[in-house]
Simulated scan of single mutants.
Amino acid sequence: MEQILSTIDFETKGQGFTDITKNINHWIKYKKLKKGILLIFLKHTSCSLIINENADINVLKDLSAYMNAIVPEEGVYPLNKNLKKIEYLHSEEGLDDMPAHIRTMLTSNNLSFSVVDGKLEIGLWQAIYIWEHRASNKSRSLQLHAIGDFDLN
C-alpha cells in the first residue's frame, strides 16, 4: 500500500458548476491507482466541492436557484420577518464574497471516494463538481491524496 499527494488546478467561469470527474479519473489512470481511497480537498473558502447528478442540467439550475434564495447577495433577512435586513460586514472583495463564504460553509470543500479497478466508484448519474460561488473567473486548486494499491510496473 502506497500513498500519493498531488495538486490539480482548474479555472472556473464565474458562478456555476465545473464538472471535474473526467479530470479526476484521468489523474487516477496517470498515477496508476488500481484500488484504494481518494481524498479530494478544495483549497478555497468561496467555492464548493460537490457530487451530484450529471444527467439533467435542470438539477444544477435548481441547486443554484435554491442557494441564491437562502443566501442572497445583498444581505441576510432574519427568520423573524419583523426585523430589518442585516447587511454583510465583509465586503472588501466585492458584494459576492461574503455570500460565497456562507455558501461554501453550507456545502463542502472535501470529498472521499473509493477507487476500484483504476477508476472512481461513483453512481452512473453522478459527477464531481467545483461549484463556484464568485461572479468572476477564478483559479482553483484541489489537493488529491490517494492511499492504496498502485501499478508500479
Rank of each mutant, 00 (worst) to 15 (best):
L38N: 02
G123V: 04
A65R: 12
L60W: 07
T18V: 13
I20T: 01
L49A: 06
N68Q: 12
L79W: 10
K29I: 12
N58G: 03
T7M: 12
H90D: 15
Q15C: 14
G75S: 06
D62Y: 11
K31T: 10
G123M: 03
S136N: 12
E11Y: 08
Y30G: 06
G36C: 02
T7P: 01
N52V: 04
D96E: 03
I70E: 02
W125P: 07
E53S: 09
H44T: 09
S46M: 02
I51V: 14
D149M: 06
H26A: 13
E2V: 09
M105R: 14
I147L: 14
G94P: 01
I122N: 04
F150T: 04
I130D: 00
F10A: 01
K85S: 04
L144V: 05
E53H: 09
T107K: 08
W27S: 04
L38V: 08
E2Y: 07
P78G: 05
K31M: 09
L124R: 12
N54I: 11
I86F: 09
D56K: 12
S64A: 13
K34L: 15
I147M: 14
I50W: 08
T12D: 01
S141F: 08
T107S: 10
S6G: 07
Q3C: 11
S48T: 05
M67C: 10
D19W: 04
D151N: 13
Q126T: 11
G16N: 03
H44E: 07
M105Y: 14
Y30W: 11
H145G: 03
A100Q: 00
K29H: 15
Q143W: 10
W27Q: 08
I40G: 02
A100N: 04
L33I: 04
Y88R: 03
I57Y: 10
C47H: 02
M105E: 13
S112R: 11
G118I: 05
K85L: 09
Q143S: 15
Y30L: 10
E93P: 02
I20Y: 01
N137Q: 10
I50P: 00
K35N: 09
T18F: 03
L39C: 08
N82Q: 13
L124S: 15
I147F: 15
T104P: 00
V59K: 03
N58R: 12
Q15R: 15
H133T: 05
L124Q: 14
D151C: 08
V59E: 07
I86G: 08
I130Y: 02
K43T: 10
H101M: 01
R134Q: 08
N23A: 12
S6H: 09
L39M: 15
K34E: 11
G123Y: 03
G14Q: 02
Y129L: 07
Y88G: 06
L144N: 07
T21L: 05
V115T: 09
I28G: 02
K34W: 05
E87D: 12
I130P: 00
K22I: 15
D96V: 00
L95E: 08
D151I: 07
S6I: 04
L49W: 03
V76N: 15
I24M: 06
W27L: 04
E11I: 14
N137G: 00
L120G: 07
H44I: 05
H101T: 01
K85A: 07
N153E: 12
D149E: 13
Y88L: 01
W131V: 09
E121T: 15
W27T: 06
S108G: 08
K85Y: 02
N23P: 07
L120D: 06
A146K: 00
T107A: 13
S91H: 09
N58T: 11
D149I: 11
